[in-house]
Design a protein around this nucleic acid. Sequence first.
RNA 1: GCCCGCUUGGCGGAAUGGUAGACGCAACGGACUUAAAAUCCGUAGGUUCGAAAGGGCUGUGCCGGUUCAAGUCCGGCAGCGGGCACCA
Length: 853
Amino acid sequence: MARYNAKETEEKWQAVWRDRGVFHVEADPGRPKYYVLEMFPYPSGKLHVGHVRNYTMGDVVARYKRAQGFNVLHPMGWDAFGLPAENAAIASKVHPKDWTLQNIAVMREQLKQMGLSYDWRREVATCHPEYYKHEQKMFLDFLAAGLAYRKESWVNWDPVEHSVLANEQVIDGRGWRSGAPVEKRLLSQWFLKITEYADDLLAALSTLERWPERVRVMQENWIGKSEGARVFFRLKDRGDTLEVFTTRPDTLFGAAFCAIAPNHPLAAELATKNQPLADFIAECNRMGTSEAVLETAEKRGFDTGLKVLHPFVPGWELPVYVANFVLMEYGAGAIFGCPAHDQRDLDFACKYGLPVKPVVLPPDADPMSFAVGDEAYTEVTGTVFNSEFLNGLEVPAAKRAASDRLTALKAGERTIAYRLRDWGISRQRYWGCPIPVIHCGKCGIVPVPETQLPVTLPEDVSFDQPGNPLAHHPTWKYTTCPACGGKAERETDTFDTFFESSWYFARFCSPRAPTAFNRNEVDYWLPVDQYIGGIEHAVLHLLYSRFFTRALKQCGYLGVAEPFAGLFTQGMVCHETYKSADGAWLFPEEVAKGLDNSAVDAAGRPVTVGRIEKMSKSHKNLVGLDAIVDAYGADTARLYLLSDSPPERDLEWTDAGIEGAWRYVNRLHRLVTEPTVALAAVGARAPENLPPALAALRGAIHRTIRDVTDDLEKFRFNRGVARIRELTNALEAVDADDGAGFVLREGLEAAVRLLGPMMPHLSEELWQELRPGNLLADEKWPRFHPALAAEETVTMAVQVNGKLRGTVELPRNAADDAAKAAALALPTVAKALEGKAPRKTIIVPNRIVNVVI
RNA sequence: GCCCGCUUGGCGGAAUGGUAGACGCAACGGACUUAAAAUCCGUAGGUUCGAAAGGGCUGUGCCGGUUCAAGUCCGGCAGCGGGCACCA
């Protein structure tokens, strides 16, 4: 029996789609648009099946919406700047640009092999000056609008690599590549004012109805809005004040001390005349910021000797410490400590012998005997006591009263603090977009004039010394000041690569426009109707893009604030891991597995089968795409990726699973090309009286169309595939009979059309069998007849006291009396009734009869 | 610590409060074949009665509740996973 030749067929249809420009698309205000986008990949080398799951889902949506008559924008591009290219340059002397472009070439071909319905004319790569010149202009506009600014900031500094490290690149307090202990350093860096939009970004989350709740919650937590008050403590013997932020102004009468961050300006000032304090601050700065360090770090403080005056109680002085657990970046960089009602403050107070005075009385506690031991009372239910004018108030009322009093005394006011911090965008890296500013000794920081954009990366760079190649390039940074014409230097930092990915979705609307966007085109296409990508981007990329879109709107680039109306986060593709006897990871293709799940390597040595984990280079548990496509074709891979698990959950890739999908591909191909019953002619009328079995099958066909359509709308791809498999199982079982050819054709056409978005090549091939000369890619989505989809007879469950005792076949919408009679007529029901009369009978039409005795 | 989410056969998973286990994977029995591959037919939650046909009981992490009826709703608990975390 001839097997389906996937590779040949797939190449044939890909050529047809390409040559006819089937997936080319233009803005057309007369038609409804639909913008489908998968998160574009970093060109890391080769595609593996994990990438493809994401793109397959997007392609199903794109092809389905297209068949429904939408004008569908479905583009693809490359997030092409990034560190791996520089690492490759260091490791193997390849230029980052060459490495990146080679990878793009390989991965583009792999994507094309998958038959994805992209409009390839719109492809962009973020490393091209034609792309990044626009973001240099955006940056200048942000600067002019006050949305970009420069400030000194504490960063993780790798002393070996001479570069800033992101938090994720610090592992156990050491640089992830150099292994050197990471230091904190004060560097002048560029920031975008994402905090300006904190409240809007938070409030608008509730409008994103087609986003997963989980992602909205994560962003909400990340923004971290806290309502509280700022309190100005007057510094004793000085004219100035110390500002702190608190969410608990109600506990001000329980204050025992104030503490400021090690890098608070006041600490720096005091340290100039206090060497032990300077040493303490330096020690705090040497401490890493990684989670492991923080968890084990002891709360430590240094008494500055300064005192502050309590805002409510004349003459009450509190000591001021520099404490290692106070963060400069949050609130005011200073706190007041209330040991009785905050665990950290309590730990600190115990260590330094500070008083612990409870001021919130838990419900039912005795005010005479209540005391705090080694556990602070942090609940906000209770009554305030020991607190003069706040006494007797519940906590929320006490917060209000305390804030009001602070305001009246001009010693503070209500305020809101956010966990969200401004987005630091400076990176001391070569392979990124140059930040378009010039440093002039006379004029300071001068933006590069628009006429001089783009500032392009030099190509003649070397990676043989640590640090940023742009900084030690012999000529690139030397230039003249646009303002005074004197000698000046270029900024050698580049943008964080999240910069490029914060606006690419809008560039796809007019990818070759001379300006960033053609306004008509972005207005037509945006927002993205369906965005698809991994949950790992739930916060950073998606939040940056939401902010960036608002900033672009503010600067007049486009008209929407929210870039992604719908978001779907798909699960990861996982695979078993393998380790050889000497502990080295092995690729799946290096391992042969026995029937009993034992495994050996190529030389026959035993291999340990490890945990099932997300596919990653480090664990080598990658399933390459090429071998799969060669052996089974793109459609088989696509079917497997869609059918085995719900799309939001992780999927385990197994050889047996892909074999199962391949079996179905061949069965379907055989069923259409060698049907068991001769198909009726195209357009033949249904016979007047179909035999009951065929009439029922016809109903099943129309129900399948109805239900699969619903499944696709709701991203239930696995359920949709299961329904189509059920239908094809039924079609395989059709016997020759009057009307069989007609029903079989109707069923096969439905199955092929429904599978079109999922397995486009096979479906196109089979459509040629069924409707020669017509392109399935141009066909409309199938419709179902409601009358046919409705079942004529239904099976109703019959229960006695809620226990199933049988079923009855009845005409659809049978009268309740008829249903009851049929149910009571069942011998099993009579037996269960034990001669008693039913007390009550509950009938749910077409579903169930429950007889209660 | 705070905030989410999940828990159904050997496995992935189906089930608008209404017949739990669709569809598939693996497995087992059989057919075809010299043989294998491929393909096709069949079996299958557990347990128990029965020679069989066919029954009984039981079953969706655990405990309780609402309901004629609970995998589904409510309360509590446990386990697993994820996010955030000296955030004042």
